[in-house]
């Protein structure tokens, strides 16, 4: 099997990390099809707790597809089919007994383009908590909103204008608002789909800082096109190419000593 080497590499990476943290998300032989077209081929990857896993690779290689299978966002796409097994804490998320809605509350997601709801900043953050019934009083809700904004590093900037529309913030602020919205429902995992690609360098730096802080509490999986960003924020890196997982391992190792030539070519900017 062509993927023999890949799985081997993956296993090595796992072994290296296991000492640090326990596996939070475990993907085994995941294949995703869009109708007749196969987009992912037999992906097996472990994403440990309190770790940032970066998914890198050229456009169209299936990073986002993989990311979206972790919180079953692919269900909303007509004709999309996921095979293989994805476990969170040993529980198969594609099992019939799993409610995708509750799953998504456990697995927060941040998108490429900031998408705050066209409501006030407060309501944006409070929405998830409200629909899941996390707060029974107004006070509790305010506490949730404040702590979420605090953790997203936005509290000081917006505390005086919580009633203003979230769409009125700057791009970086909006993205942090969306992150606050995601962590307000106490997720265990946060998925980030190129969260900084629409932001300027200063905002990017702030988000990266934030990711670094959030790592202490969450399992974070981030898709990024920026090698530098992957190197900066992640502890583990997985390189995707043409729907296949080419190589995975310690970020430092991947960037300093990639085993696969394709990885090396990509990292050094020879293609993609």
């Amino acid at each position: 099997m062509a993927s023999g080497a890949v799985s081997g590499a993956g296993a090595t990476g796992d072994a290296g990390l296991k000492a640090v943290a326990r596996t939070k998300v475990r993907a085994r032989n995941v294949s995703v099809f869009y109708g007749p077209k196969q987009a992912l081929f037999d992906i097996s990857l472990d994403m440990p707790e309190k770790t940032v896993t970066a998914l890198i690779g050229p456009s169209g290689c299936g990073k986002s597809t993989f990311l979206r299978s972790i919180n079953r966002m692919n269900d909303t796409i007509e004709g999309c089919r996921v095979e293989g097994e994805i476990d969170i804490d040993g529980e198969d998320i594609n099992d019939r007994s799993i409610d995708p809605v509750l799953l998504r509350a456990r697995v927060g997601m941040v998108f490429q383009k900031p998408n705050p709801f066209p409501k006030s900043i407060f309501d944006n953050v409070a929405y998830g908590a409200r629909i899941h019934g996390l707060a029974s009083t107004k006070k509790e809700m305010e506490a949730i909103v404040e702590s979420s904004l605090e953790r997203a590093g936005l509290w000081n900037e917006v505390k005086d204008r919580l009633n203003q529309p979230g769409t009125g913030l700057s791009g970086g602020q909006q993205q942090r608002l969306v992150i606050a919205r995601a962590i307000a429902v106490n997720p265990e995992i946060i998925l980030m789909d190129e969260p900084c690609s629409a932001l300027d360098p200063i905002a990017t730096a702030k988000i990266e800082e934030l990711i670094d802080e959030l790592r202490l509490n969450y399992c974070i999986v981030i898709v990024t096109h920026s090698m530098a960003q992957a190197a900066r924020v992640s502890q583990q890196t997985a390189f995707f190419h043409m729907g296949k997982l080419v190589e995975t391992g310690d970020t430092e190792l991947i960037f300093t000593n990639p085993r696969d030539t394709r990885t090396q070519d990509y990292i050094t900017g020879r293609f993609g």
């Binding site: 919180n71 966002m73 909303t76 809605v101 509750l102 998504r104 509350a105 927060g108 997601m109 998108f111 383009k113 998408n115 705050p116 709801f117 066209p118 929405y127 998830g128 629909i131 899941h132 969306v178 919205r181 995601a182 307000a184 429902v185």
Partner: peptide, 27 residues
Amino acid sequence: VPPSIREGALAVGASLPQTVFHHVLPL
């Protein structure tokens, strides 16, 4: 209504009816 609004709502754990009636329909 932009799909990002739907995705955002679904991603925080809103069910389909909640997504529609809280976000899509008002827009």
